[in-house]
């Protein structure tokens, strides 16, 4: 077989390990987008607390940061175990 034929053979062969690798990449991409969303939520909470200033502003800000940290933890967990 020529080198090109060997390369095509490797790429086109559906290996069960490749399927889970592709699934892992998709899951990590989804979690990456989710981290961006969680970051946006934290930013928006900051804006909301500037508009309406009250007693619960600090706990809500902390909750938004906890949400962001949780998302990052799950991303790292997926990176490690998948």
């Amino acid at each position: 077989m020529t080198p090109i034929e060997i390369l095509l053979d490797k790429v086109l062969t559906i290996n069960i390990l490749n399927v889970w690798l592709i699934a892992k990449i998709f899951v990590l991409l989804a979690l990456g987008v989710y981290i961006a969303f969680a970051f946006m939520v934290a930013k928006e909470v900051k804006l909301m607390t500037k508009t309406l200033i009250g007693v619960f502003n600090l706990p809500i800000k902390i909750l938004s940061y906890i949400h962001l940290v949780l998302t990052i933890i799950i991303f790292l967990l997926a990176l490690k175990i998948l």
Binding site: Y34, V45, A78, I81
Partner: peptide, 23 residues
Amino acid sequence: RFQLIAVLMWYLFIISFVFEKFL
């Protein structure tokens, strides 16, 4: 391992949903 991550992602989605509705 995929099942575990799927369940964790589901609960993370619930937390986001509840937080957004509360906000």
